[in-house]
Design a protein around this nucleic acid. Structure first.
Lengths: 197, 197
DNA sequence: TCAATGAATTTAACACTGTTAACTACTATT
DNA sequence: AATAGTAGTTAACAGTGTTAAATTCATTGA
C-alpha cells in the first residue's frame, strides 16, 4: 500500500502548492489578481485540477482563512503555556495578533475580507475562533471576575481595538511608518489591559 | 443656451443614476455583484455609456468613496458649528461616524475596501479626508494642547478605535445585535474622550 | 501479448467580467 | 437635401469561475 501512500503524499503536496501559490500571488499583486488559472499555471497544471482539491474558489479562500485562525489559535495556546500572569498573557496575545497581521498580511486580509480579498463563507463559526475567544475571555475573567456579559463586552472591545489599529496601520502605512504605528499599538493595548484592573 | 443646460442637467441625472444604481446593487447583493452591465441595464443604457461618465469601474468606486468622505466632512462641519465644547464635539463626531457606517454601509465599505468592495485608488490623499483630520486634531488639541506628534497619535488612536468597533460590529452582527454593539461603541468612545483630559 | 478498465489530466465550452473599436441612427446646420 | 456631428448600439477581446466531454496513459486480466 506504499503506492497509495506516496500518491496521498504528493496529493497533499499539490494541495499545499495551491494554497501557497494563492497566497503568493495575493502577497505580490493583491487578492483581486488571484485567479484559478494563474494558480494552475504556477503549479504546472490545468485549471480544472484545482477543483479536484477545492470545490470552488470560495472554499479555497475559506481554507486559507481557517488555516490563519488555526495558526493564531496555536500561538494563543503557546502563550497560555508560556505565561501565567493574566496581564502578561493578554499583552503577549495582543502582540501576536500584530505580528501575524504584518508577517502574513494576505492571510489576515482573507480572514477579515480586506482589500480585495472576499470569501462569502461567514467569518465566524469556526471552532478555532470560538476557542480563541474562550481563551481571551477566560484570561480577562481571571483578573477581573465579572458577569459573562461584562467579559464578553471587554473581549469585543479588545478585539475591536486590536483589529482597528492593525487595519488603520495598514491603510496609513504610506503616511505613517509601521514602526510608529506599532508603538501606538503596544501603548494602547498596554493601557487597555492595565485599565482592566 | 437652454438646450445645453437641459442636456447637462440630464447628463448629471444619469451620472447620479449610475452612482445610485451601483450603491443599490451593492446594498442588496454586495459589492462583488456590482458589474458595469448590471448598472447599464438598470439605467436602460448599454454598457459603454457608463464609460462616458466614468473612465473605469475603479474611478466610479473612487467617486463613491470621495462622496462618502465629502458627506462625512460636511457632517463634521455641521457639528463643529453646532457645539463649542471640544468633548461634545468629538463625541458627536464619533456618533456621526457610527450613524454613517450603518446607514450607508455600501459607501463605508468602498471607503475602506471592505467585504468585496475594492478600489485600487489610494484611500488617503483626498482633501476632504485631510480636512476631517484637521478638524479632529484641532478639537483634540483645544482641550489638551500637546505636541503635534502627540495629537497625531491620539487622532490615529481615536480613528482606529472608531473604525475597529464599527467593522467588528458589522462582522459580528449575527452573533451580537448591533444595538448592543452601539452601546459599547458609545461607551468606549466616551471613555476615550474623557481620558483625554 | 492484447484488450479493457480505470484514473489522471486536458481541451472545450458556457456565462459572465471590464473595456474598447467600429458601426448605426438620428439631429442640427449649411 | 447633403453633410457633420453626436448619442447610442453592437461586436469583439481578453480575462474570470466552473463544468462536461474528450483524451491520454498506466495497470490489470485473459
Amino acid at each position: 500500500m506504499e503506492v497509495l501512500e506516496r500518491k496521498q503524499r504528493t496529493r497533499e503536496q499539490t494541495r499545499q502548492g495551491i494554497v501557497f501559490t494563492a497566497k503568493d500571488i495575493a502577497r505580490r499583486e493583491g487578492w483581486q489578481a488571484v485567479s484559478i488559472r494563474k494558480i494552475a499555471d504556477a503549479i504546472d497544471y490545468s485549471a480544472p485540477i484545482v477543483y479536484e482539491y477545492f470545490d470552488s474558489k470560495d472554499i479555497l479562500l475559506h481554507e486559507i482563512r481557517a488555516e490563519g485562525f488555526r495558526f493564531l489559535r496555536e500561538e494563543y495556546n503557546r502563550i497560555m503555556k508560556l505565561y501565567r500572569d493574566p496581564e502578561k498573557r493578554l499583552y503577549e496575545i495582543s502582540l501576536i495578533q500584530w505580528k501575524f497581521a504584518f508577517e502574513q498580511p494576505e492571510t489576515y486580509q482573507v480572514m477579515y475580507n480586506l482589500n480585495g480579498a472576499f470569501c462569502q463563507v461567514s467569518i465566524c463559526g469556526t471552532l478555532d475562533m470560538e476557542e480563541m475567544a474562550n481563551l481571551v475571555r477566560e484570561t480577562i475573567f481571571s483578573f477581573i471576575p465579572k458577569s459573562k456579559e461584562s467579559i464578553q463586552k471587554l473581549y469585543f472591545e479588545w478585539w475591536s481595538i486590536s483589529h482597528g489599529i492593525i487595519t488603520m496601520s495598514m491603510i496609513l502605512k504610506d503616511q505613517q511608518p509601521i514602526e510608529q504605528s506599532e508603538i501606538i499599538y503596544r501603548d494602547t493595548l498596554r493601557r487597555f489591559i492595565r485599565n482592566l484592573r
